[in-house]
Computed example of a mutant assay.
Amino acid sequence: MIGNDVVDLATAKIESNWKRKGFLSKQFTTYEQILIQKASNQDEMVWMLWSLKESTYKAYQRINYNRGFYPIKIEIQSLELSDNEYFATTSLFNKTFYGKTHVESEMIHSIVLLSDSDFKKVTNYTTNTILKDKNSLPFCSITKNPLSISHHGAFKKIVQFHLK
């Protein structure tokens, strides 16, 4: 299904110290830690990977509702930069997802889906016709399409996955 996450980089810098002892090993796999160590902007890489993990978690909830805290179980399997966007393959509980991340100077925004071809079915959502299902997952009350809502600091992103 769909998941999205936004990170306000200024807020993350104030509220989170990813350099504290043990943080990286509790949140990121060895491969992900190597990506962070090799990055020219380590802050940006940490929050981009975090955003992909959070988006993957949200997408997984639509398939198999299973609340929990799974950052180390959500694995970034590949990460490539193309045309100022990062493309990733992630997994959680043996389910593969495809992610796209846009990085700006103040914000990082990731969207994760079950199929790489489904990105054409995603649009930004701006109206207030939002309801929640029995698991508190948001959907559009008019179209019944799934929504993913994320907010952090000064930023809020709502995306809609068009089923048809």
Rank of each mutant, 00 (worst) to 15 (best):
T30H: 15
Y31D: 14
E32G: 00
E32P: 01
Q33C: 14
Q33W: 10
Q33G: 06
L35C: 15
L35R: 12
I36Q: 08
I36Y: 05
I36E: 09
I36K: 01
A39Q: 02
Q42M: 01
Q42A: 02
Q42V: 00
Q42G: 00
D43N: 13
D43C: 00
E44Q: 14
E44F: 09
E44L: 10
E44S: 13
M45C: 10
M45L: 02
W47N: 12
W47L: 11
W47I: 04
M48H: 04
L49N: 09
L49P: 12
L49R: 06
W50A: 11
S51E: 08
L52W: 09
L52M: 10
K53L: 04
E54R: 03
T56E: 06
T56Q: 03
T56V: 04
K58L: 07
K58M: 00
K58N: 00
K58W: 00
A59V: 00
Y60T: 09
Y60F: 15
Y60A: 11
R62C: 02
R62D: 01
R62N: 01
R62H: 03
I63E: 09
I63K: 05
N64K: 08
Y65L: 04
N66K: 12
N66M: 13
R67G: 09
R67M: 11
R67S: 13
R67D: 14
G68H: 10
G68A: 10
G68V: 06
F69I: 12
Y70N: 01
Y70A: 00
P71H: 07
P71W: 12
I72Q: 14
K73L: 14
I74M: 10
E75S: 14
I76E: 11
I76H: 02
I76T: 14
Q77I: 12
S78P: 10
L79S: 14
L79I: 15
E80F: 06
L81K: 08
L81G: 02
L81M: 08
S82I: 01
D83A: 07
N84Y: 09
N84E: 15
E85T: 08
Y86S: 01
Y86D: 06
F87C: 03
F87N: 06
A88M: 03
A88D: 04
A88Q: 04
T89N: 14
T89F: 05
T89Q: 15
S91R: 00
S91I: 00
S91Q: 12
L92W: 03
L92H: 10
F93W: 05
F93K: 07
F93D: 10
N94V: 00
K95R: 03
T96G: 07
T96V: 15
T96S: 15
F97S: 03
F97C: 05
K100D: 07
K100P: 10
T101I: 06
V103R: 08
V103H: 07
V103L: 08
E104P: 02
S105L: 13
S105A: 14
M107D: 11
I108C: 01
H109P: 07
S110C: 13
S110F: 10
D116V: 03
D118G: 04
D118Q: 05
F119M: 02
F119A: 06
F119Q: 08
F119Y: 05
K121S: 11
K121W: 05
K121T: 09
V122F: 13
V122D: 10
T123Y: 13
N124G: 09
N124I: 07
T126E: 13
T127A: 05
T127M: 00
N128S: 02
T129D: 15
I130W: 10
L131R: 10
L131V: 11
K132S: 07
K132M: 05
K132A: 03
